[in-house]
């Protein structure tokens, strides 16, 4: 009756989903220095767009593509007014943007209302046993994550990557070199929102149901914690951070049954996560993996 392998496969699927979200935040904050506290908004837009389209009978790839395009456009649109703000105001605006989208979805019954959308078609064919289904899902998210990784890798090791790092270090200096920093920032916002969108579209078909309450601001902060753990401006670190956070969460859930503690075991996870973040902030603020030096292009 016990199928621990299912639990572990499921965990790695979530590591994939959150790994993609972490890469996306890393491109914005780690490499460009943009404060985005509303990552969940683009995750949500991707999930809802794809869910609506696939429940109308379209195949999943059209849903996924639409999720990516709509999220990316949303990212671009929000960036137009937002990027003119100072970094802390950008953080506030993105946070509020996520909440606005969530509250609209909760109140619009034609978009599912508070109970959201159920019966989203899954990419796995029906009739497979549960473990095989999980393996197919894991393979799919691995492909998606690999594509996002390669896109991010190419970006940061290109002239484009050097400009966005320049913006992070000193925007004024970069602008003085004749770079249109606004255009670079808007592009990075659109690209990373597209990644968040595909993560959302994938999650929707995996769980097969989405509700507005799955997209609370806490999700954005979870991604921030993953990036803090894994390392800022390091795309391998994005996956490491996601793995550590989710593994930690699940291990704590299991471990609490075997520990006799003077505290309520349900709060164990919160205490340990808080402690871990504090340790990192004090002892290793750059995260586990450091930023790599820009690759050399000698001979290219």
């Amino acid at each position: 009756m016990v199928n621990i392998e299912n639990f572990i496969l499921d965990m790695f699927i979530y590591v994939g989903i959150f790994g993609v979200l972490s890469i996306s935040l890393n491109l914005e904050y780690g490499f460009t220095g943009l404060w985005n506290f509303g990552k969940v908004a683009f995750y949500m837009i991707g999930a809802y767009t794809s869910a609506i389209i696939t429940t109308l009978g379209q195949p999943f790839y059209i849903g996924f593509a639409a999720g990516v395009v709509v999220s990316s456009l949303a990212g671009l649109l929000i960036s137009l007014p937002a990027l003119r703000l100072r970094e802390d105001y950008l953080g506030i605006l993105t946070l509020v943007f996520g909440e606005i989208i969530r509250i609209i979805l909760k109140n619009e019954y034609w978009l599912g209302g508070p109970l959201g959308i159920r019966g989203i078609p899954s990419i796995t064919p029906a009739g497979l046993d549960y473990t095989t289904t999980l393996l197919v899902q894991l393979a799919s998210i691995t492909v998606i994550a690999a594509v996002c990784y390669l896109v991010a890798y190419r970006l940061i090791h290109s002239p484009f990557g050097r400009v966005i790092r320049g913006i992070r270090e000193d925007e004024l200096a970069t602008a003085s070199l004749g770079k249109n920093t606004f255009r670079y920032k808007a592009s990075i916002f659109a690209i990373s929102s597209a990644m968040a969108g595909i993560a959302g579209a994938f999650m929707g078909q995996y769980v097969t149901s989405i509700t507005p309450d799955q997209f609370m601001p806490f999700v954005s902060f979870t991604v921030w914690m993953m990036v803090m753990l894994g390392g800022f401006a390091n795309i391998e670190g994005a996956f490491l951070g996601a793995f550590l956070y989710i593994g930690f969460e699940r291990a704590a859930r299991i471990a609490k049954d075997y520990l006799l503690l003077p505290i309520d075991p349900n709060n164990l996870m919160f205490i340990l996560t808080g402690l871990l973040i504090l340790i990192f902030v004090f002892l290793r603020p750059q995260g586990l993996l450091k930023e790599n030096k820009v690759r050399d292009y000698k001979g290219v």
């Binding site: 621990i4 572990i8 593994g247």
Partner: peptide, 21 residues
């Protein structure tokens, strides 16, 4: 970082699997 991360990852997995069994 890398070494520490790998160590942590392995420990996490072992704890999870053992507890599960």
């Amino acid at each position: 970082g890398t070494a520490a991360a790998a160590g942590l990852a392995v420990v996490l997995l072992i704890v999870g699997i053992a507890a599960g069994y």
